[in-house]
Design a protein around this nucleic acid. Structure first.
Lengths: 145, 145
DNA sequence: CTGTGACTTGAAGCGCGGTTCAAGTCAAGG
DNA sequence: CCTTGACTTGAACCGCGCTTCAAGTCACAG
């Protein structure tokens, strides 16, 4: 018999809302580890759920599986990784700003009466700064041929 | 002869920062329209740049190409779509909250001295509410790239 | 007329994040 | 013993958002 306090993969799947295939996939990629087997079945320590919550959040924040794997191995002396994290944090800052603008734009869009919607000046204004970012580094000043 | 004020695909590509292949792809999917040809070459009206900014923003906010296509066809009487937009707006609200939490977590992580980082209680606390969200079952949204 | 060279097309390929599938293994039950 | 049924594996496949490729077409220079 195997230790009792461990969770079967099926149970972890149910409680985490992830498919068993996803759990195996994560294990394969080094995001989680199984603590043993019960016959063929993977058995996980309960704290895997906590880790899965973290992974879900990171995924939601746009991190790739590979990045998350690296972050999970972090130790205090890994200064490179720390720098990387700080970098990511400020990237998130920008993402948050973008999403906020988008939210406001959508909010307006859902009640605006312009036809078509795309031509609504208020709606357009939402994206002015994004357009600026696009124009960074354009050598050509004038339009017509 | 073709109208003069139009932009060649190459110019649009340069000014938008997108690859020509991406522009063709978008056109193929109905996100943008070319206003004519100059020989074989697509010619775009200048306002396509504005639209591309909008598309970039929407993409960044996690909308799929197909969704964006639908949104761009919106008219004021399309109440279904309006509802959909409002829905998306509040989904963004959640995304923003999640990203904010993640940013704070990363911020702390980049200076925390726990070994391993994953065991830091402060860091963990960042994800408590996410864990709750897992138990209530959620069809995980995903962000790009 | 013949390059040249940037475009055109549709189709195939890629990286990501998984899911699905075929085939195999195990523990328990009859 | 044999069956059942949930798991195991590696490999193939999927949808997305493009990119790349092969082959073709065009305008213009010489």
């Amino acid at each position: 018999m195997v230790v009792e306090s461990l969770l079967d993969i099926a149970e972890v799947a149910e409680r985490s809302g992830l498919a068993p295939s996803a759990l195996r996939f994560y294990e394969n990629r080094g995001l989680i580890a199984s603590a043993g087997r019960n016959g063929l079945r993977r058995a996980y320590r309960p704290d895997v759920l906590e880790r899965l919550a973290l992974i879900a959040c990171a995924r939601g924040a746009g991190f790739t599986i590979a990045e998350i794997a690296r972050f999970l191995l972090a130790t205090p002396d890994d200064t490179k990784l720390r720098a990387h994290m700080a970098e990511k944090a400020s990237a998130l800052e920008e993402d948050i700003a973008r999403l906020t603008r988008m939210r406001d734009g959508l909010h307006h869009a859902s009640t605006c009466m312009h036809e078509p919607l795309v031509e609504c000046p208020d709606f357009k204004r939402t994206f002015e700064s994004s357009a600026d970012h696009m124009r960074s580094g354009t050598p050509d000043p004038s339009l017509p041929n």
